[in-house]
Structure formats: structure tokens, C-alpha cells
């Protein structure tokens, strides 16, 4: 079924099925952390998650119909935001903690061992508290994640060729489907019409906060790499270099 003919309920059920499995770091964590050991664990986990993220994106109805160039651009623009929203979702029921994976959980204070990371941890914890206050539902979470992916490159590229224009139009229709799905998810919560509108506004406004933290995180990771605190390799290196050179 094409996404344009799916009901919002059907669309949500497809993106719920696309959710990646729980991922484990699978390392013996030696505490206390050093700056290098914590950065290594964080980047190892990110690298594993990135591979699953590609698979997740491909399962979002309509994504693989976009041009390959658009698929690449979207993923390279939003990967850290997607990782951060996943982290926020896993941490939402654990105040003061960041649940990177079931076997890699950090308290705020543990961020002290990595220069400059505490500020990012605090921003992530603040976003997590806000989602906790709003009692974010799983259906809403999956819609927000798809919105981050599809919206990530919208204002930084302008289509030149007919093919690019076609892909751009497909992207806009796909965003319509995701927004419809989010509106539908909110409508299931038993709120008044006005409260539903406000909730939609509050949830989507949080995305700008996530973009901001992601930019901070990207700068931080680039600095850590430049200072040789951590070796960045494989897919993560490709994504990071893409971000450093591609803007």
C-alpha cells in the first residue's frame, strides 16, 4: 500500500513496526570512566545504532521512493537528532539518568569526566523532563522521529533538476502523512480540541531543542576527534565527516 492511501492509524502501525530492536553496548564497563573510555563507549554504541537507523529509515513508508541523494542527505543531516530522541525516549521514566542502552546507563555526574559533555547531558536531561511532563506516548514518539528525519534537510536544499523536484514533492507528501499520523495519535488521548492543538505545538517545538542539542553534540564529537580523545571510524566517521564538510 502506498503511504498516500494509508489511514493515519495504518501509517503509525507501519512506523511502529519499523522501530529498531533494543541495542546493547556489550562491553565490560570499567568504572570510574576515563574521558577516553566514556567517549569510546558512546561512539561504539552510536556506530551500532547508525547501522540499525538506516534499516529503520528504509522501513518508513515512502522513504525508499525518494531519490538516493535525498535519502543520503536526510540521514546525514539528522542522525544525531534521531539518536538523541531515542536516548530521551529510553530515559523518560528514569529522572536524572541517561539510558544509552540497557547495559550503559549514566548519571548526570558521570558526565564530569568528559570535557564539555556535562552541558550536553544537562540539555538532554532537560528535554527528557519536558517529554516526561507531557507524558509522551509511543505513537507520538515514533511520529516525531519520522518528522525529524523527513524535515532535516528541507530548508538547506533547493531542487534544481526535474528529478530533484519530484523527490522533493514526494518528501513533502510524506511529511503530510507523518503530520496527519501525529495529529491522529494526539486525537486518541481524549483531550479537548484546543488541548490537542496545544499538545501538537508543544511536541513539535521540542524538536527545535533537539536540533540545538544535536548541533552542540556534533561540535563536541568533532572536537574530541580532532584532539584524538577518541577514534571515530566506519559509518560514524562517514556521517561526522559529512557533517563537518557538508555543513
Amino acid at each position: 500500500t502506498h503511504h498516500s492511501s494509508m489511514s493515519p492509524e495504518e501509517f503509525i502501525s507501519r512506523i511502529m513496526e519499523a522501530e529498531p530492536p533494543e541495542i546493547y553496548l556489550m562491553e565490560d564497563l570499567k568504572k570510574p570512566f576515563t574521558q577516553a573510555s566514556m567517549m569510546m563507549s558512546l561512539t561504539n554504541l552510536a556506530d551500532k545504532e547508525l547501522v540499525l537507523m538506516i534499516s529503520w529509515a528504509k522501513k518508513i513508508p515512502g522513504f525508499v521512493e525518494l531519490s538516493l541523494a535525498d535519502q543520503i542527505h536526510l540521514l546525514k543531516c539528522c542522525w544525531l537528532e534521531i539518536l538523541m530522541l531515542g536516548l530521551i525516549w529510553r530515559s523518560v521514566d528514569h529522572p536524572g539518568k541517561l539510558i544509552f542502552s540497557p547495559d550503559f546507563k549514566l548519571n548526570r555526574e558521570e558526565g564530569q569526566c568528559v570535557e564539555g559533555i556535562m552541558e550536553i547531558f544537562d540539555m538532554l536531561l532537560a528535554a527528557t523532563s519536558r517529554f516526561r511532563e507531557l507524558k509522551l506516548q509511543r505513537e507520538e514518539y515514533v511520529c516525531l522521529k519520522a518528522m525529524i528525519l523527513l524535515n532535516s534537510n528541507l530548508c538547506t536544499s533547493s531542487p534544481q533538476t526535474a528529478e530533484e523536484l519530484e523527490s522533493r514533492n514526494k518528501l513533502l507528501r510524506l511529511l503530510d502523512s507523518v503530520i496527519d499520523a501525529l495529529v491522529w495519535a494526539i486525537s486518541k488521548l481524549g483531550l479537548s480540541t484546543q488541548q490537542q492543538t496545544l499538545r501538537l505545538g508543544h511536541l513539535t517545538m521540542l524538536l527545535s531543542h533537539i536540533r540545538h542539542v544535536s548541533n552542540k553534540g556534533m561540535d563536541h564529537l568533532s572536537t574530541m576527534k580532532r584532539k584524538n580523545v577518541v577514534l571515530v571510524y566506519d559509518l560514524l566517521l562517514e556521517m561526522l565527516d559529512a557533517n563537518m564538510t557538508g555543513g
Binding site: 547501522v51 540499525l52 538506516i54 538516493l68 543520503i72 546525514k76 562517514e238 556521517m239
Partner: peptide, 24 residues
Amino acid sequence: TSLKEKHKILHQLLQNSTSPVDLA
């Protein structure tokens, strides 16, 4: 072509039908 070269792994994963779990 440069986009494909710059993002070899990403490009491969997007085009590959093999389970990314196997590739990981």
C-alpha cells in the same frame, strides 16, 4: 558520483537488501 564516494557505507546500506544486522 562524489556523493556516493563520500558516503560509501551509507550508500551501500541504503541500497543493500541484506539485513544491516548481518553487516554490523
